[in-house]
Structure formats: structure tokens, C-alpha cells
């Protein structure tokens, strides 16, 4: 094949490619937006977000207005919680809330709010979203602050006269706060070991 013939072949190939491109038609029959988005969904209003945005972060972000005392919490607990968690929070049958400090490294660890939970804000978040079991999201912020205060008090983590609110709750120091470590796995039969 001389070089003229090679050039002719190459030319034919280019023509063929051009034909294929033209036959496929203009690219914009497939549409598409310039920003590569699908433009599905609509912008949520602040009210719609507020209605569902109930979570509480460890720094207290998201805590609602309101306040509660240990004394008020004792009444909330007796009325809404004691039936499942026991009179003082240790009897169960639902998870124990009180006690267990110093047991985590033993053969029989007792994981409670006082012995295991790293953040007091989690207690508020969980009660507010999921408790009481038979009527979740039925307690007011004041009631949740109060019963949170009572559970912390029972665990020896809050003085009786402290009023819990969005300022004081994140400041409660939990004993197991520094006890959590990142995932080191694979820790057994590591590849190459």
C-alpha cells in the first residue's frame, strides 16, 4: 500500500466518521440542562424544615427553648417512664438508665446513661424523638428537659438545684465521654498477617 493509497483510506475513514456523527443528529435532541442537574424536587420552606429538624448535636445545636428541674423530672419519670424502666431507673425491664459506673472493664459490664453514654445531649435527643415508647414525641421540651435532669441526677451527674436548658445541658460532663475509640479493624487476621 503506497502512501497515496494510505491517505485515501484515511480520508474514507474520516468521511465515514463524519457521516456517523451527522446521522446521529444534533446532540441536543437529548436535551439536558447546562448545569448537569436534573431539576427534580422543590426548595423546602423554612417551616417545612423546622417541622422535622428535631435533632440535637453534642454542642447543643438544635436544643429547643424550655427548661426543667430534677423535681419536675421525678414526676414526669413516674408518669411516663417508670412503667418500663423501673421506679428508680435500674429495675427494667427496658434498658437500665442508672448505675453501672466502673463496671465497663469487668466481666459483667452494666451499660447505662451514667456509665456509658458519652453525651448528655443524646439523652435529650433520644427522649424527644422516640420516647415514651407507646407515645413518642408526645412530651413537651420542658418535660424532656426535666426528665433528662432527673436521670442525670439519679446517676450523680447533676446537682439537684441545677435547671437544665439549652445552655446548661451541653455542659454536663459524662464519665465515659473519652471512652470511645475509632474503628481499628481489621484487627484479627489482618491481610498479610
Amino acid at each position: 500500500m503506497d502512501r497515496w493509497e494510505r491517505a485515501r483510506v484515511r480520508g474514507r475513514s474520516l468521511l465515514l466518521l463524519l457521516f456517523v456523527i451527522l446521522a446521529a443528529g444534533p446532540a441536543d435532541v437529548w436535551g439536558g440542562s447546562k448545569d448537569a442537574l436534573f431539576h427534580l424536587g422543590r426548595v423546602a420552606t423554612p417551616e417545612e424544615i423546622q417541622a422535622w429538624d428535631i435533632d440535637v448535636a453534642p454542642d447543643g445545636e438544635g436544643l429547643p427553648a424550655g427548661r426543667g428541674t430534677v423535681e419536675a423530672g421525678e414526676r414526669v419519670y413516674a408518669g411516663h417512664c417508670a412503667g418500663c424502666h423501673g421506679g428508680t431507673g435500674v429495675e427494667g425491664p427496658s434498658p437500665k438508665l442508672v448505675g453501672g459506673q466502673g463496671t465497663l472493664a469487668s466481666a459483667h459490664p452494666v451499660k447505662t446513661v451514667g456509665s456509658y453514654w458519652p453525651y448528655a445531649t443524646t439523652l435529650f435527643d433520644y427522649i424527644y424523638r422516640a420516647m415514651p415508647f407507646v407515645a413518642p414525641q408526645s412530651l413537651t421540651p420542658d418535660q424532656v428537659y426535666a426528665v433528662t435532669a432527673w436521670i442525670l441526677f439519679q446517676n450523680g451527674l447533676l446537682d439537684k438545684d441545677v435547671v437544665l436548658d439549652r445552655e446548661t445541658l451541653p455542659k454536663v460532663r459524662m464519665p465515659h465521654r473519652t471512652g470511645f475509640v475509632p474503628d481499628p479493624r481489621p484487627d484479627v487476621n489482618r491481610p498479610g498477617s
Partner: peptide
């Protein structure tokens, strides 16, 4: 940063013999 919900602190964390607990152990080995 993580919200530290009940299910990633008091549950679904793995207590070790020394009393520490592994957190965010997501992979199923």
C-alpha cells in the same frame, strides 16, 4: 461532624475488655 445519636453511642458500639468502646464500626467483615 457526627450527631452522636443514641444508636451510635449507647448502641451499635463495641465494648472492649479494657472498658473502651469502638465507635462507627461500620464494615461487616
Amino acid at each position: 461532624s457526627p450527631m452522636m445519636t443514641r444508636e451510635e453511642t449507647s448502641k451499635y458500639t463495641d465494648l472492649m475488655p479494657d472498658g473502651t468502646a469502638r465507635q462507627f464500626t461500620f464494615d461487616m467483615e
